[in-house]
Structures are given as C-alpha cells and as structure tokens.
Design a protein around this nucleic acid. Structure first.
Length: 315
RNA sequence: GCCCAGAUAGCUCAGUUGGUAGAGCAGAGGACUGAAAAUCCUCGUGUCCUUGGUUCGAUUCCGAGUCUGGGCA
C-alpha cells in the first residue's frame, strides 16, 4: 500500500503557502517546503519565507535548515525531506509538499537516486577553467566519446550540464544519460495528488510586481545588506536567489535602487515562466487557476478540497 | 517666430551607395534528474510619421506639413 501525500506546486506568488497551510489544517497534515532558497537561514523577506504567524500552527519542515554560507543542493534536500516524511508518517499525519522548486519536489516524489557518487568541486573547477580557456565547444567535444547521447542532447553552451555529465562519467564509468533515462522511468512510490496553482499570466505578473514592492517596504535592502556585511557575495549559492543577487549589485554601486527593484520584478517574471514550463509536464497535475476559482484563497481551497473528496483521497 | 537634429518592431536604436529592413531589451515557447530562484536553447512583417515630386521603382533623394528634442530670439 503506497503512502499518501499531497503536492502543492506552482510559480512564485501563486498562493502555494496559504493553500498548503489550509489543507494541513483541514486534513491534519504538516508541510514540507520544497524551495531552494527558503532552506537558508536569514533569507526571509527576499525568499518570501512563510512567517510563524502565517504557519497557523502547522508544522513546517525544510525551512531554515542551512547556513547561507553553505552550499545546499538536491541531494541534501532529498535526504532531509525523507527524514521529514518518516517523521510525519510516524505521527499518522498527511505530508504536504509545497514549493516552487520542481527539481526538489521530483527528487522526493520519484525518489531519484543520488547515492552513486558525489560531486567533485576540484574536477568542476578544472573543467570550468578548461572551458574558459579553450571554449565551450572544446569542453563539449569531451563528451563525444564517453557519452554520445548527452553529447547530442546537451547544448555546448550549457556548460553546467556538460560538466556534470563529464563528472558523472569520471566517477561511475557510466554515461549520465543512461542513469537519467532509468530515473525518468521510475514510478512514484507514493499515492499522491499534485495541485498546480496558476493564474492568468497578466494577473500573476501583476501579483509578482506587488509582492516585490511589499518586500522592499518590509526591509529587503537591509536584509541583503546584513548578509553582505557577513561576507556573503554573488558567488555563494544562497546569493544566487532573485532579490539577493540584484541587491548585492546595488550595494556595490553597480545599479541604482530603482533599477534594482525593476530588475527583481523582471527576473521574478522570467522565473515564474520557467517554473510553469517545468510543472506543465507533470503527469496527472491538477491545474487550479486562481481566477477560475473565484480569485480568492478560499476559492482555491474549496476547489482543492472538492477534488480530494471526489477522489476519496482522504477518507 | 527662426535655426538644427530626429521620426524604422511594445521599448532603445542600427541600416538600406534607391530594389519594401535587423540587433539588443521586452514578450512567447522549450529543455532540465547532485549549482535548479541556477544553467541553457528556439522564435523578429513592421502603414520604415504624413503628403507631393523625381524615378521603371522611394522607407532611402528633394519639397511641404505634423510631432518630439535642442538652440537662438
């Protein structure tokens, strides 16, 4: 018998956190946040982290579990999320995976295998230098013999992917394309309902703009400045998040305050678009369009609860 | 009022020695399996301001007009 869980996914500013909390309150659950930025401590305003009040007494996992100076990545996320799942199941509660990082959600939902080997910073460094010295094309050519499938599939300018493919081969002797192919075929070990929150594009974009303005009013600049003063810089993974990156530039005088705010809005829109592209291919996703649900949190919640009940998911 | 410079894609502009035009940004679509808020790929027809003229042919040259900058009064 597969264990049950609910997923609440969607682009930034689509109302995921609110729905997840409400579902937990109604159904007796806890939230596992699937967000690559909210895992970091002290990234509160800019990551749109849920506040203790907003949690409404619902337990939240995977928030504030990493130091901004430490690199965090899927494999770590997956391990912690699996611990959280056991914890939630042991209390006979329903886990609600909620977040905008599709890659993280899938790592748990399909139990992606990351155990075979680790990452190799020095090799990555070496390959990266090779690329800047000899060009992306030359680096890409290295793939030709060891992994012809990846050679065809991965664009030569996508050096992160090219590096990873080479790294994987170096450590396992197998092409990463074969590994990925196998992982893609996996069936989820869970019995789940996948909610995909969306809204009409224009409305979503307008909500993003408003939210960025609200973040700025709430003291976003000071938050980033504090991190900057702690020694965090653009090359720290935690500072690659939208808002942090742009304000780092502002602090260093590379952009004006007004330009920075506009930039953040723009990058957030682009991000939302990428998220939609990722989630759209999710098999069996139930799309909840906010406007179609009446444009309110209550409307979205009602729609979600109706589907859960129709499916007899939580009898 | 006079003089000068502009007027080309949603925006900023390039260009056409006269044969109806192309970049960046925006926007749209897509990929992604140990950096993922990261990284990467694809997509550009628009009265070339209006109107006369010259010409086989004008967005391009010439004249007039309109608008927008700037300067002089």
């Amino acid at each position: 018998m597969k264990k049950k869980l609910i997923v609440v996914a969607g682009p930034t500013a689509s109302g995921k956190s609110t729905l997840a909390v409400s579902l937990c309150q109604k159904l007796g659950g806890s939230v596992i946040s699937c967000d690559s930025m909210q895992v970091y401590k002290n990234l509160d305003i800019g990551s749109a982290k849920i506040t203790p009040e907003e949690m409404g007494g619902v337990r939240h996992y995977l928030i504030d579990v990493a130091d901004p100076k430490d690199p965090f990545y899927v494999a770590r996320f997956q391990a912690l999320a699996n611990e959280a799942l056991s914890d939630i199941y042991s209390r006979n509660e329903l886990p609600v995976l909620c977040g905008g990082t599709g890659f993280y959600i899938n790592s748990v939902l399909y139990n992606t295998d990351f155990t075979e080997e680790g990452k190799d910073e020095s090799l990555r460094q070496k390959l990266s230098e090779f690329a800047s010295e000899h060009g992306n094309h030359a680096l890409h050519e290295k793939l030709k013999d060891i992994d012809p499938v990846s050679y065809e599939t991965i664009h030569e300018n996508n050096i992160k992917r090219v590096i990873r493919a080479i790294e994987y081969y170096e450590h396992t002797g197998e092409p990463i394309s074969a590994h990925n192919e196998a992982e893609r075929k996996k069936e989820s070990p869970y019995d789940f309902v996948f909610f995909l929150l969306t809204d009409d594009r224009q409305k979503l974009y307008a909500r993003i703009d408003r939210r960025v303005d609200a973040m700025v009013s709430a003291g976003l600049y000071d938050e980033v400045k504090r991190l900057y003063d702690l020694g965090l810089r653009q090359n720290d993974i935690s500072m690659q998040g939208i808002s942090y990156r742009q304000f780092m530039d502002c602090i260093e005088g590379k952009a004006t305050f007004a330009e920075t705010v506009e930039r953040i809005k723009l990058e957030s829109r682009h991000y939302a678009k990428r998220q939609m592209t990722w989630f759209r291919r999710q098999e069996g996703a139930i799309v909840l369009n906010r406007t179609a649900c009446g444009g309110t949190d209550e409307g979205v919640l009602d729609a979600a609860l109706r589907i859960i009940s129709e499916r007899g998911f939580c009898d």
